[in-house]
Each structure stands twice: as structure tokens, then as C-alpha cells.
Computed example of a mutant assay.
Amino acid sequence: MTDAPLLLAFDDDRCRDVDLAGGKGASLAAMTHNGLPVPPGFVITSAAFTAAVDGDALLAHLRAEDLDAARKVVAETEPPKDLIKQFYDRLPAGDVAVRSSACAEDSADASYAGQQETYLFVPTLEEVYGRVVECWLSFFSERALFYRLHKGKLDDIFMAVVVQHMIDSTKAGVMFTVDPVNGRRDRVVIEAARGVGENVVSGEVTPDYYTLDRKGTVKKSRIVDERILSDDELAQLVKLGLQLADLNGAPQDIEWAFDGTGLYMLQSRPVTTV
């Protein structure tokens, strides 16, 4: 991967390569390519990490199961700051999200969702540099290494990082294009909360819960307080969700958000429970 690009914008066709952009990055690039509403961003590729890190030392520490020494190598690794600044300056003004994107992530037999770090509302370029290293470090936590030992390979050091314009969402959540509990493929399940979707994903709030048919008609709902999503918003979500499932050839687990300008798709991965 010596000639591989170190950074790629979502609209670069090469960004759809999971080996370079990781699961999240490639998914965002694919959604961008297919005209779905995705906040702009770029990926610091797996090649950037392997080019910057002392790979021999890192692998030696991992094989010796010396996690502290391995993490020290990663912590002292400098991201490609000049290139990051170039891509960062092209984004709309405002905060960004910095998200880990493992290259083995979200495959059909190993979902790495939640294994690595995500940082929201990162306000400055200098902080972005630090968060990139924190994302790299998260790939070498005890939890992540234990998971990889059982699901993948311990010497897999390929990880990308996504930097994306932050949507200041008024409502957000997750959508499953199949019922994840009973596997019904004629149902779409949507969970919604006010604010950012991380509130739903992390379980910090109790979301509204909607079960719909594939035409977007509500079949069942559980509203916590005042209803969060209108019928039109639910129909929009179902339409885009089924489009994503069709494009990917499999049921999808999707993160979404509405801000003052409309609906955005933030992530899409295969549903691994059906």
C-alpha cells in the first residue's frame, strides 16, 4: 500500500475501498456516490496510519502482548497535519465529528460497532489532530484487542479515521430496515430522540419507537413525551432506508439526523442480528 493515498474526500471513488477508508468511511463514500444526503467530510486512510507509525515496533509489542508499550508507540505517532489542514479547510465552517473506522469493521461476521472511539462537536483543527491519535489509540484498547483476537487477527493494524462536518441536529436516531428482534423483513423500525443520535446509540435517553411497513405507514409506536417525528419525516426515513438496503443488498442499521435544513444519513452498516 506504498502508493496509497493518505487522505480521501467522501466524493473520491477510492474512498469506497474498505481497506483504505474502513467500514464507516467506505459507507459514507458509497452513500455520497449514490446521491444520498451525507454531511461532507474526508477520511484519513489506513495508509496514513501505517505510513506514520513504527509498524515493526508496534507489531512486536502486540505479539509480546505488551499493550502499554504498543499504546506508547501509537500515542507518539504524528498524523499528517498539513494534509489534514488542506482537507479540513474545504469543509463548511463549524464543528466536526471525528470517528474511528476499522478496516475489518461491519463485515457480515464481525461488527466492530462501538469498539472504537467517536468524538462529536470537535471545534478546532488542533483538537482534530489530537482526536485522530485518540481514535488510533482506541484500536489498541484492551477491549478492542480482545475483540479482534476472537473475531479477527491481532496483527491487524489497519484503521482509518473519518472527519465529517458536524450536523447540529434537532432530532436524530437509528433505523433498522428489518425488525431486529423478530427478523420481519416487511417492517422498518425507527428510534428517535431530540438532539444528537449518540443519545440513542449510547442509551442515554429513552427514544420514541416506531414500527412501520415498507410504505412508511406507522403500525405501532411508543411515544415517550411529545411525538418527535411527523408522518412525513418517518416516510422520508423509510424511503431512504429501503434505498440503502437495496443498494447494499442487505438489511441496514442506519444512523440519521434532522437539522434545520433537512434529513441527513450519518452511517449505514449491515444488520448482523438477522
Results as ranks from 00 to 15, higher is better:
Gln236Asn: 09
Ala113His: 10
Ser169Pro: 06
Thr170Asn: 14
Arg185Tyr: 08
Phe121Arg: 12
Thr211Trp: 07
Ser230Met: 12
Ala192His: 01
Asp156His: 13
Trp136Glu: 05
Gly114Pro: 13
Pro207Met: 00
Tyr210Glu: 01
Ser221Thr: 00
Ser202Ile: 07
Met166Ile: 07
Ala172Met: 10
Gln116Arg: 13
Phe139Glu: 00
Val188His: 06
Ile223Cys: 01
Val162Tyr: 13
Val218Asn: 11
Arg185Asn: 10
Gly203His: 10
Val218His: 05
Leu229Cys: 10
Asp156Met: 07
His150Cys: 07
Arg131Ile: 09
Arg194Gly: 02
Arg214Thr: 14
Arg194Thr: 00
Val133Gln: 05
Gly152Ile: 01
Glu134Pro: 03
Thr118Ser: 15
Thr118Asp: 05
Val224Trp: 06
Gln236Arg: 14
Pro180Tyr: 00
Arg222Lys: 14
Ala110Trp: 03
Ser138Arg: 09
Tyr112Leu: 09
Thr170Trp: 06
Leu125Phe: 15
Val189Trp: 02
Ile228Arg: 00
Phe158Gln: 12
Val224Thr: 02
Glu126Tyr: 05
Ser138Asn: 05
Gly183Arg: 06
Gly183His: 12
Asp213Leu: 02
Phe146Asp: 13
Ala235Met: 08
Val162Glu: 13
Asp225Met: 03
Gly195Thr: 08
Ser202Pro: 03
Pro207Gln: 00
Asp179Cys: 12
Ile190Gly: 03
Ile228Lys: 02
Gln115Glu: 07
Val161Met: 11
Gly197Glu: 04
Phe139Cys: 14
Gly152Arg: 04
Glu127Lys: 13
Gly152Tyr: 02
Val200Leu: 04
Asn199Leu: 15
Gln115Ala: 00
Ala110Ser: 11
Trp136Val: 01
Arg184Asn: 15
Val132His: 00
Asp208Thr: 00
Ala172Leu: 08
Leu120Thr: 04
Phe121Met: 13
Ala235Ile: 00
Val196Tyr: 05
Asn182Val: 10
Val163Gly: 13
Leu212Thr: 12
Val200Ile: 06
Ile223Ala: 02
Lys153Tyr: 01
Tyr129Phe: 07
Phe146Tyr: 01
His150Ser: 14
Gln115Arg: 11
Gly216Phe: 08
Ser141Asn: 05
Asp168Ile: 05
Val161Leu: 09
Thr206Glu: 13
Glu142Thr: 14
Gly195Lys: 14
Asp168Val: 11
Val218Pro: 08
Ser141Thr: 13
Lys220Ile: 04
Tyr119Phe: 15
Gly183Ala: 09
Ser221Trp: 06
Ser221Met: 01
Val161Gly: 10
His165Pro: 03
Leu149Gly: 11
Thr177Lys: 06
Phe146Pro: 03
Arg194His: 05
Asp232Glu: 14
Met159Phe: 02
Asp156Cys: 10
Val181Glu: 10
Ala172Phe: 02
Ala113Lys: 11
Asp225Thr: 09
